Amino acid sequence: MNKPNPEFDSLMPAVRMDRRGFVTTVAAAGFALAVQPVHAQTVIKTDAEGLDTGDIKIPVEGGELPAYFARPADGKDRPTVLVVQEIFGVHEHIKDVCRRLGKLGYLAIAPELYFRHGDPRSIDNVAALIQGIVSKVPDATVMSDLDACAAWAANHGGDPGRLAITGFCWGGRIVWLYAAHNPRLAAGVAWYGRLDGAPTELQPRYPIDVAGELKAPVLGLYGGADQGIPMHDVDFMRDELKRNEASAEIHVYADAPHAFHADYRPTYRKEPAEDGWRRMQAWFKRHGV
């Protein structure tokens, strides 16, 4: 854990909302920079040999939820992993993650959680993407949509008793929230998901707010050089998890930036990405997924 920063701590009033407002202000620019999209080819390309893959639509409130899935072609009762998109939606990297999980024996499903509000791949400006789509997506609807994906998986070869979730960037925050939402979840792994921020009507809580409500163990994987997620937030989250005796761990890669697993962007760091992938598998196995 990082040592306390007296200069920062001296600016932190006792009231939690004041701290949140300060951290949100100083981190906002860094987060926008950290999530800048890069439209490039992925480094890792996983084929679909031995897998069933494809696009599906799941009936949900307000329409049909598009999703991509990958699962072993043979066998049933597969452990299921909900794969939650980055801020940019279900692009090729996220689909490749599903195929990687499929090769490991999982039924992986990645839903298009913005589908009611627009296509994030049609917007190449992050500020416009956040204002025009992301800020309009209610957390409550995301939780409901993920529940629908879990139900679909249970009826299509998945074992409902072995349900996990993993997510990246925007999806990393969702992992923590879903672990506080679904009592049937077995485990979660959050990749550099924001831990704190300014609450809104549609997105009223952050992982720090639900540290005492986790219904499943969560592993957080974070970068020490992340410009959008201050280490003060990571330390604060660790303290909250410890105070609440939560079944969760956070691992920090000291020199890794935000999106160190995203192999289609210059932020990709091979060693932390591969180590995080191993840790994720071990976490799932440790918790029966």
Rank of each mutant, 00 (worst) to 15 (best):
M143N: 06
R279I: 04
G193F: 09
G132Y: 13
D119C: 03
A150R: 10
A248F: 09
A34Q: 02
D233T: 05
E7P: 00
L202M: 10
V289P: 01
T25P: 02
L185Q: 11
H287S: 05
T200A: 07
E49T: 11
G158A: 02
A254W: 09
I87T: 13
P120K: 00
A151M: 10
H232Q: 14
A110K: 03
L113A: 05
V35S: 07
M143R: 14
E213H: 10
R238G: 11
A29G: 13
G172A: 08
M280G: 01
A128Y: 01
D147M: 07
A248T: 08
A187N: 06
I174T: 14
A187I: 03
G171Y: 02
D147F: 02
A150D: 03
L163V: 12
P59T: 00
W277K: 00
V35H: 02
I133N: 07
A67S: 04
V60F: 04
A190L: 08
F236I: 00
M237R: 04
F284T: 00
R99F: 12
V97Y: 07
P111V: 03
L107I: 05
F236Y: 10
D124T: 14
H39Y: 11
V126W: 03
L195T: 08
G161P: 06
L65G: 01
Q85A: 12
G167L: 10
I44N: 12
A248Q: 08
V126T: 14
C98S: 09
G158V: 02
Y68S: 03
R194Q: 13
I174W: 07
A198V: 10
R269F: 00
Q36M: 12
L163K: 08
E245Q: 14
L51I: 06
Q85T: 11
A282S: 12
K136L: 13
A256P: 02
K270R: 13
E213G: 06
G102N: 07
P79K: 04
P37W: 01
I56N: 03
P207V: 09
T25S: 15
G50R: 05
G63S: 04
G171M: 05
V97S: 09
P66H: 06
A216V: 01
A254I: 08
L107R: 02
E271D: 14
D9M: 11
R279D: 00
C98L: 09
R279E: 00
A128G: 01
H117Q: 13
F115V: 03
G62P: 00
T25Y: 12
F31H: 09
V90P: 14
Y178L: 05
L65A: 04
A110V: 05
A73N: 05
G118I: 03
V210W: 08
I250R: 04
G21E: 13
Q41A: 14
A180K: 06
W176T: 03
S135Q: 12
V175K: 08
K270V: 01
V218E: 02
P266L: 01
L177R: 11
E86K: 05
A273S: 14
R243H: 10
S247Q: 15
A225N: 09
A34S: 13
G171V: 06
D55S: 06
T80F: 10
A70G: 07
Q85K: 10
A259Q: 10
P72H: 08
I130W: 01
P207F: 10
V234R: 05
G21R: 15
A32M: 15
R194F: 04
I87M: 11
